[in-house]
């Protein structure tokens, strides 16, 4: 009798767990099936491809590490890696500073706060093709308003007017554009972070006679540490993935990037869809992945550190 009850109990517990699992899986399934098929499978494939030589039609050949060895000697790959890193190093701090500044201002009780918050987000929601075409016009080397201002107001001679979309300036242009486009977005993240700092801290600070700068330095900044950290990681990852901004600002009519503006994703695309060197393209993609992974690992480290604080 006793053993029968426990048996039945065990069985019903088992049945209950099974039911629980199935209910949970039914929740996950619609998303997970799509996710597994369209994301997990290709990712696995991408890893394999980096060690193969394949053009999409002819028989696949295993080449081991050859693709990676070729990368080291590839001038275009090195240029694209370099450009991607320079671009990220320029964009991340500038965006951080401007978006944090904006967030702090817009966290105050000022008139039209909602309006300004909305406005800051405009460049991010606007279509890239549209805003880049404005930028190419505004910074047009001989007709654009920016150079017109330099010419008329600052008397910069005609032949010294900058060509914003070539040479070293092109990366500066990409950085400026990205800061403009993304600062509103990260501002919102900082705004959210600011909400988590308890008001009492500021009140206590004011009572203790701390001035605005001191309150910022000793209350706001430490309070925002986790947010700043997360934002910089997200930003860095997004910067590594730059493609369409570069093509649209620097690609010209042929949508091609030269050595001075080539970025990793462009090189991945070119090798895959123009040269059909799929294995090689995947090897470049793996370099991108390692870059992102490094940043993510740093984030995990940092996060656990901040979580403990």
């Amino acid at each position: 009798m006793a053993s029968g009850t426990s048996d039945r109990l065990a069985r019903s517990r088992k049945r209950r767990t099974l039911k629980k699992n199935l209910v949970a899986y039914s929740f996950i399934a619609p998303n997970f099936i799509g996710f597994a098929v369209f994301t997990l499978v290709p990712i696995t494939f991408a890893f394999l491809l980096a060690f193969l030589e394949w053009d999409g039609n002819n028989p696949i050949k295993f080449v081991g590490l050859e693709n990676f060895q070729a990368l080291v000697k590839d001038k275009f790959f090195i240029a694209s890696l370099k450009n991607t890193i320079i671009y990220s190093v320029g964009t991340v701090p500038l965006t951080l500073v401007t978006s944090l500044g904006l967030a702090i201002i817009l966290n105050k009780e000022i008139k039209g706060r909602a309006f300004f918050r909305t406005l800051g987000f405009f460049p991010y929601v606007a279509s890239l093709v549209a805003v880049t075409s404005v930028w190419t016009m505004v910074f047009h080397s001989s007709k654009g308003p920016v150079n017109a201002i330099l010419y008329y107001l600052f008397n910069v001679p005609k032949e010294k007017l900058p060509n914003w979309f070539t040479g070293n300036l092109v990366l500066v242009m990409l950085i400026l554009f990205s800061v403009w486009r993304f600062m509103g977005y990260y501002m919102v993240m900082f705004l959210a972070g600011l909400q988590t700092i308890p008001r009492e801290l500021y009140e206590a600070g004011t009572i203790d006679g701390a001035n605005a700068w001191q309150r910022f330095r000793y209350i706001t900044l430490p309070g925002l540490k986790p947010t700043t950290f997360l934002v910089s990681v997200m930003l860095t990852i997004n910067c590594f993935k730059i493609y369409d901004i570069a093509v649209m600002l620097a690609g010209g009519s042929t949508n091609t990037l030269s050595v001075s503006s080539m970025v990793l994703v462009y090189y991945i695309y070119q090798n895959a869809f123009n040269f059909w060197k799929l294995g090689y393209s995947s090897a470049v993609a793996m370099v991108l992945f390692v870059l992102v992974l490094t940043v993510t690992l740093i984030q995990f480290r940092g996060q656990s550190k901040y979580a403990n604080e």
């Binding site: 996950i28 996710f35 290709p42 990712i43 494939f45 491809l49 999409g56 590594f240 493609y243």
Partner: peptide
């Protein structure tokens, strides 16, 4: 399962866009 999701958030789409296209 959740780890599978998290791990791919950091994976840029561009890394696997080619195999995905072939598939």
């Amino acid at each position: 399962i959740f780890f599978a999701y998290i791990a791919t958030i950091a994976m840029p789409w561009q890394v696997y866009m080619v195999p995905q296209f072939l598939m």
